[in-house]
Amino acid sequence: MSSDVRTAHMVASVLLGYPDERLYDGLGVLAEAVNGLPTGEVRERLSAFLSHVAGTDRSELAAHYVATFDLKRRCCPYLTYYAYGDTRKRGAALLRFKHALRAAGFEPADGELPDHLAVVCELSARGAVREARRLLTEHRAGVEVLRAALAEERSPYADVVAAVLATLPPAGTREQEAALRLAAQGPPAEAVGLEPYSMMEAGR
């Protein structure tokens, strides 16, 4: 059901953000939302992470978040990075995310890039389920690689990413091969940063 997907993505959007007051002030609401989901992998994975939060010191979780997502490129939460790396093509890919968010009347807070996994989950939670699932499915290989990298790091965040993946249709052979290839080769390399994205945005 789309309402269950929206709920799961709403919870994931908060859990995948930096663990600040938004997370801790909303723990009761998040737990209630997860308990209302159907029994299955999505509910189990999100519940496991919430249990981890409840049993972990705030400063420890914050330090883990920074060490994992900010300092390890293999655990990058930005979906276009996996497909395009720091190449010119990434700018155009980012615009697709930006347009999907704008069509839904959603602007990420604090200038966050639109392809952050938490932002795409929030897009779904705000009602644009079809658009968000399309973006997630198109970049599924990257999400699979992120989940595997987090699992290798023994990060509890692997549960949250796995929950998001479990809301998508089963991966086909082509998607599985793409994930394996990406895991083996890594993203393309071309040190041009995100300038094309900035330039295209400036002209709009």
Rank of each mutant, 00 (worst) to 15 (best):
G111C: 03
S124F: 03
A125G: 06
P114T: 08
A103K: 14
T137I: 09
R130A: 15
R96T: 10
D110N: 13
L135F: 03
L101P: 00
A93Y: 11
A109E: 15
P114K: 07
L113Y: 11
R134H: 07
R96N: 10
G91M: 06
H139C: 00
A118F: 08
V120G: 05
R133M: 05
S124M: 01
A100M: 05
H116S: 05
E112W: 06
E138C: 06
E107N: 14
V129L: 04
L117Q: 10
A132E: 06
L123I: 00
R133C: 05
G127P: 00
R96P: 12
D115S: 00
L101S: 05
P114L: 07
L135Q: 02
V119C: 05
R126S: 11
A104V: 07
V119N: 00
A109T: 14
A103T: 13
T137V: 06
A132W: 01
H99W: 10
E107Y: 10
F97C: 03
G142K: 01
A141V: 09
L101V: 08
E122M: 02
T137F: 07
V120I: 13
V129A: 12
A118D: 06
C121W: 02
E107G: 10
R88L: 10
D110Q: 11
L113T: 15
G111I: 09
L113P: 01
V120L: 01
K98D: 13
L94E: 11
H139F: 04
V120H: 01
T137S: 13
G111K: 06
F106K: 00
L136N: 02
R133A: 10
E138W: 05
L136Y: 10
G105T: 09
A141P: 08
E112D: 13
L113V: 14
R130E: 15
R130D: 06
A100L: 08
A141S: 13
F106A: 06
K98S: 13
H116G: 12
F106I: 09
G91C: 01
S124A: 12
V129Q: 08
V119T: 14
G127H: 07
A125M: 08
V129Y: 07
G111S: 14
L117P: 01
A104T: 07
L94N: 09
E131P: 00
R90W: 03
R88T: 15
G105S: 11
R134G: 02
H139S: 03
G142D: 11
R133K: 14
